[in-house]
Simulated assay, not measured.
Amino acid sequence: MKISGAIVAGVALVTCLGTASAAAADPADPQPETTHQAQLLATNFQLPFPCGQSWTGNSNNSSAHTSYEIDFNRGGSPDADLGDTVVAAAAGTVVISSHQGSTNGFGNLVKIDHGGGWSTYYAHLNARSVSAGQSVSQGQKIGTVGKTSRPGNNISAHLHFEVRQGSNYPANVRKAVFNGVTFGYPNQTLTSRNGCGGSTNPHTAESVCGSGYTVINSAGLGSAGTVYLLYNKSNGYNCVTTIKRSSIGTPTATSAYLEVQGSARKTDSGDFSYYAGPVIAKAAGKCVKWGGKAGSSSHDSPFQHCG
């Protein structure tokens, strides 16, 4: 949440089986959708891949999917990610590390118990790097992307990932939350913050601006943050937000602005803990200036993105 004063297009190419202290929230801040989501946010799950890698998740490309299961791929061809590293989404204890044989379509499966009834599943692995009973830390390698399954089930390489709570399958499969933000079902491309070190900002430009907005430009503000320009093609609005990358959770001077050609500049500026903005204005068919500041760095664009 923002406290004043106080995230490669792709398609899964497969068929498979399957505590922060209390604070007043800005009404525009993204909120957990359900009690389950609030609990899941507290686990601080991260994408199950190394820091900086971008992966496309798809929940509807397989006829075998029954709920919020996700298939992850990167690269433009089948098996492009075969052998890529898979890491633990959160710390926990390995309760399954085995090849499932003909039991189901999971092939090489790792299941991690995170406590409180929460667990994660990593299926079709090419190789497993952990054993049942082993404690793992967030970001620790647990295996590699593969295409193992039951005999005769030929699939392309991918990671089948699930978050579950309880044991009543498939009702126990929950929406995945990565870096504090709910996965954009049915598909979304995300960049991993797993193992990046230091504090991570749970907010992304898309989560701040809201549904329908897509990043069309961005500018780094040193190590202090990044300012983003987004556009919603369904309504013709632009959105600007500055996401902090340092002093996360500590109020520091942060700003974001948007100026539509022919209109007055709109600015959000103050001592914010996570981000400035969103600054939103209708700009279809017009040029915009945009920018922001975090720490000692700032960005000011010329009029651009006219259209």
Rank of each mutant, 00 (worst) to 15 (best):
Y231V: 06
T56F: 08
V11H: 02
A12N: 03
V227D: 01
G133L: 09
E206T: 15
H299Q: 06
I7S: 03
H114A: 11
G198F: 09
G220I: 06
S301M: 10
Y185P: 07
S156F: 05
A157F: 12
S135G: 07
Q261L: 10
S247Y: 09
V110P: 03
G291A: 09
V11K: 11
D26E: 13
Y275I: 10
T267C: 07
G195Q: 03
V181E: 11
S255A: 14
K244E: 03
G292V: 12
G249W: 08
S4P: 00
A127I: 11
S102N: 15
S263Q: 15
A276M: 12
N238E: 07
G10A: 09
A25L: 15
P170W: 13
G105Y: 05
P302I: 13
R150M: 10
R150D: 01
K2D: 01
G220V: 09
D29H: 08
N238Y: 14
V215K: 13
G83S: 13
Q100A: 04
K175E: 08
H305W: 15
S135T: 15
S131P: 01
F161V: 07
G146R: 04
N60S: 15
S59F: 05
T103N: 02
T182F: 00
S102L: 13
G139I: 11
S119T: 11
N104C: 13
S223Y: 06
N58T: 14
T241Q: 03
F106S: 05
S167R: 01
I142E: 01
I70K: 02
G295H: 06
V14E: 03
T148Q: 08
S67G: 06
Q140K: 07
V110E: 02
S297E: 05
G198D: 05
A38M: 10
K175F: 00
P151T: 07
S246V: 07
D81K: 04
V130T: 07
A253R: 09
T214Y: 10
